[in-house]
């Protein structure tokens, strides 16, 4: 499957944006304002859909004219682009979006043509699949680790560096003791939160 690399799925969605000549503020502009204000860190809606490694949303308002001798052409619709890189299969992911962050999903996609709402999960899934583009070539540098494994590993790395510094030069027995304690603490530490960009000190 060209949309997948190892255990990571690359989803590309192009949703046509409503073109309403009577809107006081056009839907693409409303969308841009809304997207610009969405939280990006641990309070981001995508932190809740916790299998998301990276995701972006943007308005593609037209194609680009690259100059002579190419010809100039324009799109009839504007499109909302959704690019996401996540663990697991597409169905599960879409279901998680519809059930875990339905309000967010609605507030974004309600600007798009034919959007059925996240309330009807089956309709939502089939809508999203209609908007999906098949990836021609997908590259994932790390494609065998889940978001949670990566966050854990980053936490471990930070903790190990500080352990090494604190215990440099200690006699063997003391070192072994410290290590056992350290390992216990590290394993008991809560899962780091996606999107927070912080590692808890151990």
């Amino acid at each position: 499957m060209p949309n997948e690399s190892g255990s990571v799925y690359g989803l590309t969605i192009l949703s046509p944006i409503i073109d309403d000549p009577h809107a006081r503020i056009s839907h693409d502009l409303q969308l841009r304002m809304h997207l610009g204000a969405l939280p990006r860190g641990e309070d981001s809606p995508f932190a809740k859909v916790s299998s998301t490694h990276m995701a972006r949303l943007t308005v593609m308002n037209d194609v680009v004219y690259v100059g002579m001798p190419a010809c100039e052409e324009h799109l009839q619709s504007q499109y909302l682009v959704f690019e996401s890189n996540f663990d697991g299969d597409l169905d599960t992911y879409l279901r998680r979006m519809a059930t875990e962050i339905p309000d967010h999903v609605d507030s974004v996609w309600s600007h798009c043509i034919g959007y059925p709402g996240a309330g009807d999960v089956a309709a939502f899934e089939s809508y999203m699949k209609k908007c999906q583009l098949t990836t021609t070539f997908y590259f994932a540098d790390v494609n065998d680790k889940t978001v949670q494994q990566t966050l854990r590993a980053l936490q471990t790395q930070a903790a190990v560096a500080s352990f090494i510094e604190r215990n440099q030069g200690k006699p063997a027995a003391e070192l072994q003791n410290a290590f056992t304690k350290f390992l216990g603490k590290l394993r008991a530490a809560p899962d780091p939160r996606p999107g927070s960009g912080k590692d808890q000190s151990i």
Partner: peptide
């Protein structure tokens, strides 16, 4: 190029080098 309106990453503090190094440490 066209701009991105909203962008999320689960591990904003890490480059792909950092991620790979962390997995080796783990």
């Amino acid at each position: 190029q066209f701009e991105t309106d909203f962008y999320y990453t689960a591990y904003p503090h890490a480059t792909t080098n950092d991620v790979k190094a962390a997995h080796r440490v783990q």
